[in-house]
């Protein structure tokens, strides 16, 4: 009896906690699936966590939202930025990691030391001078300005370098004896043998770029170039503001992330800060 009681209390606690973590997201989704007036009519009751009882209402909010704002454009923008940054980030940082892992060259120690120092620079605090650089380059209000600063990443270079060092030199030598140059070695040997590192960097940079807000907000002025995160605050401040439409754009912007988290869950934990605990 005592044991059963303890177990019930435990489950009660677990469920209570689950409610605390889930209800905001649940309210977000169901509020996007009912008319504006119903949201405030239901507030506080059990019905506030259920979609409209009238099924024909469910996607009406989305229709209204799409008629006021060019949502497909925002989705496409976000996808363009995230995919470009992800692919660019894998390529550029893997190439640099390859150089550090498998080449002896002049200035290697100095450059690598510099790289480790750069890990300490808090990127968020230099946004102002990053902006003046983008201004000087004349790329403000272009898609290029959103993408370029997000590609080079010291932590990813470090992660790739550590991973590539584990590829045996004998394999590289034997491929080279068959007449392959460094590029072919990189493409056909190094990258295919390092799928976990590629997947980790890909997952982390996709999530980071999808969620990026401050930088695109600063460099973009044309609304038709906005990614979803910037579009959200734009929609949330464009009168008249409807709660159900805001919840709809929040829901839309979250769906791709849910998919990424489901399919790439085993790579998420590898990104634990820039603390050098990555793959050894």
């Amino acid at each position: 009896m005592h044991k059963k009681l303890k177990k019930s209390i435990e489950y009660f606690l677990l469920i209570l906690l689950a409610c605390i973590f889930i209800f905001p997201m649940l309210w977000m989704v169901v509020s996007s699936m009912k008319p504006e007036a119903e949201i405030y009519l239901d507030m506080g009751g059990i019905q506030s966590l259920l979609p409209s009882l009238d099924v024909s209402q469910w996607f009406l909010t989305y229709k209204e939202l799409f008629s006021r704002f060019n949502v497909p454009q925002y989705v496409i923008n976000s996808i363009i930025y995230a995919v470009t940054i992800t692919v660019g980030s894998i390529m550029v940082n893997a190439m640099a990691g390859f150089a550090f892992a498998k080449f002896e060259f002049r200035g290697k120690k100095l450059l690598f030391g510099l790289l480790l120092v750069l890990l300490i620079v808090p990127v968020e605090t230099i946004i102002i001078t990053q902006f003046t650089v983008a201004h000087t380059l004349g790329i403000l209000n272009t898609r290029l300005a959103v993408v370029l600063p997000m590609i080079g990443n010291m932590f990813f270079i470090y992660l790739f370098r550590n991973f590539f060092r584990a590829v045996p030199d004998e394999i590289i030598e034997s491929v080279k004896l068959d007449g392959a140059n460094n590029w072919i070695v990189f493409w056909k040997v190094i990258l295919p043998m390092s799928k976990p590192a590629v997947a980790t960097v890909g997952t982390l940079s996709f999530i980071a770029s999808w969620n990026d807000y401050l930088w695109p907000l600063m460099v973009l002025t044309d609304t038709d170039k906005f990614p979803l995160q910037v579009a959200i605050t734009n929609i949330n401040t464009t009168q008249p503001v409807y709660t159900n439409q805001v919840m709809a754009i929040l829901t839309i912007s979250t769906i791709p992330l849910i998919i990424v988290y489901i399919f790439a869950q085993k790579y998420i934990l590898q990104g634990l800060g820039g603390s050098g605990t990555g793959i050894k």
């Binding site: 390529m91 550029v92 940082n93 190439m95 640099a96 390859f98 150089a99 550090f100 080449f103 450059l111 750069l118 620079v121 990127v123 230099i126 001078t129 990053q130 650089v133 380059l137 370029l148 600063p149 590609i151 080079g152 010291m154 270079i157 460094n182 990189f186």
Partner: peptide, 15 residues
Amino acid sequence: FLAPALILLGTFLVI
């Protein structure tokens, strides 16, 4: 192999 990373990090971080 280093060039793209060095150019990007130089332009948007070091400078």
